[in-house]
Amino acid sequence: MKIMVTGTAGFIGNHLALRLLERGDEVIGIDNLNDYYDVNLKINRLARIKDHAAFTDVRLDIADRAGMEAAFKKHRPQKVVNLAAQAGVRYSLENPHAYIDSNIVGFINILEGCRHNGVEHLVYASSSSVYGANESMPFSVHDNVDHPLSLYAASKKANELMAHTYSNLYQLPTTGLRFFTVYGPWGRPDMALFLFTKAILAGKPIDVFNYGKHRRDFTYIDDIVEGVIRTLDHTARANPDWSGGKPDPGTSKSPWRVYNIGNQNPVELLAYIETLERFLGKTAEKNLLPLQPGDVPDTYADVEALVTDVGYKPSTTIEQGIERFVTWYREYYRQ
């Protein structure tokens, strides 16, 4: 299978591309190596896959309309996984235009490329952030998600709506995956686990928002990648029982689906930090702070739809995942 993966220098995209190559797929990797965080980390991720005979490295911004049109026409992927995006809730308060450029303009370029080049299935990254002000736990794909609390969340909700339009108009099968707090080796430096590890090893205090009472459905990278691949191989189909009289937000009469992809086991942030302290062998000095604007207090994924449709079953415990991350971090940064 020839698969286009956007964001192959990113955290999830790099792990996914490696797994696809290992199973024998051809991967067309799209990434612009932007400087949102350490470019060297992105380059080193790419080093894990760039010399593979079945990997093609395309240096391109998905917001580049002409460039994306050319890439689709040249490489003719059978399936596409769009993971390139401007990420981060807090950064969306500082630089909102970056989210429109990448997450909206870039996504329409992906949809158009799929439409005009006979792509069989588009899988794309959404986010647990779309649940916004929803306080019903666990979050279900059958819940309404019309009240985002950040521009990042709004852009991901927009992606789901845009995808539905193309599924309806052009019968393009699309599947959105609402990721829940992904962590693990080669992770993003702006994520809590990375920030905490760096600060604790340096003997510096860590900022703990919402006084550590956050509950997050932390999901290990290998479990995420397994879910993405299973979803990619299971082309989205119309729901024959879908009714316009009482529409289901998670399915459609068109070949469109959205799924939660999480661990289905939320952990309080303070407990997460305590586990990290144990594997680092050091205790953190904590600055306990209030909830940040745009953040949600808790995330908790109902993944039953993904279990039913593709057999998704996360298996990595928090202890296993954090231990593997700490081992990688010490080796990578020689600490």
Rank of each mutant, 00 (worst) to 15 (best):
K2S: 09
K2G: 07
M4D: 02
G10S: 08
G10Y: 04
H15E: 07
A17Q: 01
G24C: 10
E26I: 11
I28M: 08
D31A: 08
D35H: 07
Y36S: 13
Y37I: 05
D38G: 05
L41Y: 06
L41T: 06
N44Y: 08
A53K: 14
D57E: 13
D57C: 11
R59L: 12
L60N: 00
D61L: 05
M68C: 10
F72M: 11
H75C: 10
Q78C: 12
Q78I: 13
V80H: 06
V81G: 07
N82C: 09
R90P: 00
E94R: 13
H97K: 10
H97D: 12
I100S: 01
D101W: 11
N103Y: 05
I104K: 05
I108Y: 09
I108H: 08
N109H: 12
N109L: 14
R115C: 14
N117I: 09
H121V: 12
H121N: 12
V123K: 00
Y124Q: 01
Y124M: 04
Y124N: 01
A125I: 07
A125T: 03
A125M: 05
S128V: 04
N134L: 15
E135Q: 15
E135W: 05
S136H: 12
M137C: 10
D143W: 00
V145G: 00
L151Q: 01
Y152A: 06
A154D: 06
K156A: 00
A158I: 03
N159W: 02
N159G: 04
E160P: 06
L161Y: 14
M162N: 10
M162I: 08
A163E: 06
H164M: 10
Y166V: 05
Y166W: 08
S167L: 05
N168L: 13
Y170Q: 12
Q171R: 15
Q171W: 06
L172F: 07
G184R: 02
G184F: 03
P189Y: 13
F194S: 08
F196I: 15
A199L: 09
A199Y: 04
A199C: 11
I200V: 15
P205M: 05
N210T: 10
K213F: 08
R216A: 10
D217F: 04
D217Y: 06
F218I: 08
F218W: 15
I221C: 04
I221G: 00
I221R: 01
D223S: 01
I224L: 03
E226I: 04
H234K: 14
A236M: 08
N239I: 11
D241G: 12
W242F: 15
S243K: 13
S243Y: 10
G244W: 12
P249V: 07
G250P: 02
S254E: 08
S254P: 06
P255I: 00
P255E: 01
P255H: 10
P255C: 09
R257G: 03
Y259L: 09
Q264F: 09
P266Y: 11
E268M: 15
L270K: 07
A271W: 05
E274M: 11
T275Q: 13
E277G: 09
R278S: 15
E285L: 11
Q292R: 12
G294R: 04
D295E: 15
V296P: 00
A301E: 04
E304L: 12
V310Q: 00
K313Y: 05
T317H: 10
I318S: 01
E319L: 12
R324I: 03
Y329R: 01
